[in-house]
Nucleic acid binder design. Structure first.
Lengths: 377, 377
DNA sequence: CTGTTTTATTCATAACCTGAACAAATGATC
DNA sequence: GATCATTTGTTCAGGTTATGAATAAAACAG
């Protein structure tokens, strides 16, 4: 970003920006563009010199822990992706200490094999209600324990600051960071995949509820006596829309094999979608019911929060064509048209690896703030 | 509030507060307490001298427009209540121009008979989705028209700035202004009365959705084929809990007379509640079903927003004893216990006249900002 | 009457941002 | 290719705002 643009974003005069950036450049925190790329073409005037964060300020590891998978990503302080990989590893039946040992070991091994010796912080996205201030997983559908002090546990093992975030919030953050339109006003990101989660942002900042967590919108009960959900309740939004729910119901319809690793693979889900597209009426009904629930869910969001943007994202968007007719019918039937019209609905195809991007971005931001604090001292 | 307290609230040093308040005292905007009230008792040290807004800076009229009633209140710039009254007047079948004529006439008459010649602004609370920035009623369950430019229409007639707010938001604001606990964290105020509305506050500031309106939570559909709602939909929260809904169903049970003025009076509602308390099983069931819906509604709020405080307010709290058993059962059955435990639930008995207090407070605040702008210029 | 406690004020100072003028770097034009 | 227009970035003096430290003021305690 060039100095003028920074000024416009912050509502500051160019003079101030120049002043502040000069000292940051001196300290090596920022680096100026090598310029002379020319080929700028038709713009008159002195060309902008963009400023970047130096890439030598340390790197950050972003981690997503799923039901049976760990996604890892290494990013340097300039925001460039340095390495990423994922590991199949069931985490379901581990005790608290064991879980943290496995995570710490995996992260250390990943950093080493990526040749990163300057890891400054670790960002972790996980399912459930996360106390983002104290780094505690207050409740999770996949962990047996509750009030798990994940940040301090990993911090003790790795000796680095740990940032924890709900996975849907992390994805919502990544998506809004990529699309500046979504950073103005209120944006509700509904992530459909392994589960259903909501990340809600006001003017680009993640909404925080009590204990500084996000939302457990996926476990809102839509149908009093609906299907079983893994949270223990019945009729939750998730119990219709999550991969595990769709696969469970598909198994009853056509006796396909149960997933080998507890949760269905992407291939297994694709196969359900393909067969439904090919015309299998029972599977088609499955997606019709899911679409209806999605419409009801978005309807609740509109009537309650009246967001400017609603984003439907996550692997579940793979079946959006099958969901759409019943989704739109349900949405229209339950919202006041004048209010419905105020919300723009976006479908963003995104896989789970966007999650690590989200937590990395947040961890980098925290790092920046730390830098600011260091400089102040 | 004393200077020290102002400093604590604003996170400023006493020196700065002293400096700023001195100039405001000079200009006559603030007035210092006459002190020497003594009787302070056990506190050592120099006694605080509280500062108040002068009462000579003009007054504000707060108005609530209901289905068949107009509530009015006159408050001076010191925040003291000067006059209030209410008028029975059906507003339902008026056209836009006619409605604004009636309102303007009523407000002028009220100000005159109260001897207020220094009315500086008017705050108006009304049902429906209100664009608080442009002063437009985008949608309302009681008005035929949509996108009614109420603020500019009344502004033209009265020649004064008009502030419009959703009625539930106005009541929520008044309640949080009275109880400082509710101004920290996130507070969801569910107002049950003529209709059902939600005012949601984050750190004491009203949440604004798209077009700067609030929430139409009362028209979230809880039951797919539930009872008819006045919004045109079916199974809305309001269609179970609002006075008109309870009275409509009570009429079917015991053939009581229809309300004379479209909406049931407080007496009529009291009589239903009394008979249910006395043991009428069908009426008792009515409140049981309503309590269940209230529990589901609060459950959605907890799972979606995870507020620190939930306030149930409005005339509907008159039957809280009847609602409570099914309310708590429904709430517990649909929320994750760990999340349920994070929200404190308060029941605040409040009648509709608290609404005018809410809009007056907001209008006064706007006036203060205007003052600040004037001083700056 | 002196000491303690809390509130409020004074004042020099530091931090921060800004407008205005100016320098720099490019495209456009004749 | 010299000059002008246009946009970016810098320098600098000055204004606003908040602050810490010292001090005064107003009460109670013993």
């Amino acid at each position: 970003m060039a100095r003028v643009e920074i000024g416009q974003h912050l509502g500051m005069s160019p003079a101030s920006v120049s002043d502040l950036t000069a000292s940051l450049l001196d300290e090596g925190i920022l680096v100026a563009e090598e310029a002379a790329d020319s080929a700028s073409g038709l713009i008159r005037g002195r060309p902008k010199t963009r400023l970047y964060f130096a890439e030598t300020l340390g790197s950050v590891v972003g981690v997503w822990t799923g039901f049976n998978r760990i996604e890892l990503r290494l990013v340097d302080s300039a925001g460039r992706n340095r390495a990423s990989r994922h590991i199949e590893r069931p985490l379901r039946n581990l005790g608290a200490e064991e879980l943290m040992d496995v995570l710490a070991g995996t992260i250390t091994a990943f950093a080493e094999e990526s040749g990163a010796h300057d890891v400054k912080a670790i960002g972790l996205a996980c399912q459930g209600y996360v106390d983002t201030k104290d780094g505690i997983v207050a409740w999770s559908p996949v962990l047996g324990t509750r009030d798990l002090p994940l940040a301090s546990g990993l911090g003790d093992r790795l000796g680095k600051p740990i940032l924890i975030e709900n996975d849907a919030s992390a994805m919502a953050f990544a998506i809004t960071q990529r699309n500046s339109d979504l950073r103005s006003g209120r944006t509700a990101c509904l992530m459909v995949g392994d589960g259903v989660g909501l990340g809600f942002l006001i003017q680009g900042e993640l909404y925080r509820g009590a204990r500084f967590g996000g939302s457990e919108f996926g476990h809102v009960r839509l149908r009093r006596s609906g299907p079983q959900c893994r949270c223990g309740g019945r009729g939750c939004i998730e119990a219709y829309l999550a991969d595990y729910a769709l696969h469970r119901d598909a198994q009853l319809i056509d006796h396909r094999p149960a997933p080998t690793l507890l949760l269905p693979s992407e291939d297994a889900m694709e196969s359900i979608v393909e067969q439904a597209r090919a015309g299998d009426p029972a599977l088609h009904n499955l997606f019709q019911a899911a679409g209806e629930v999605l419409g009801d869910a978005v309807g609740i969001l509109i009537q309650t929060l009246e967001p400017d943007h609603i984003v439907i994202c996550g692997p579940g968007t793979r079946a959006m064509d099958l969901l759409r007719p019943s989704f739109e019918a349900a949405l229209d039937s339950q919202t006041i048209p004048e209010l419905r019209a105020l919300a723009a609905i976006h479908v963003v195809e995104s896989s789970m690896d966007l999650l690590t991007e989200g937590v990395v971005m947040q961890a980098l931001r925290e790092l920046d703030l730390d830098l600011a604090r260091l400089r102040a001292a």
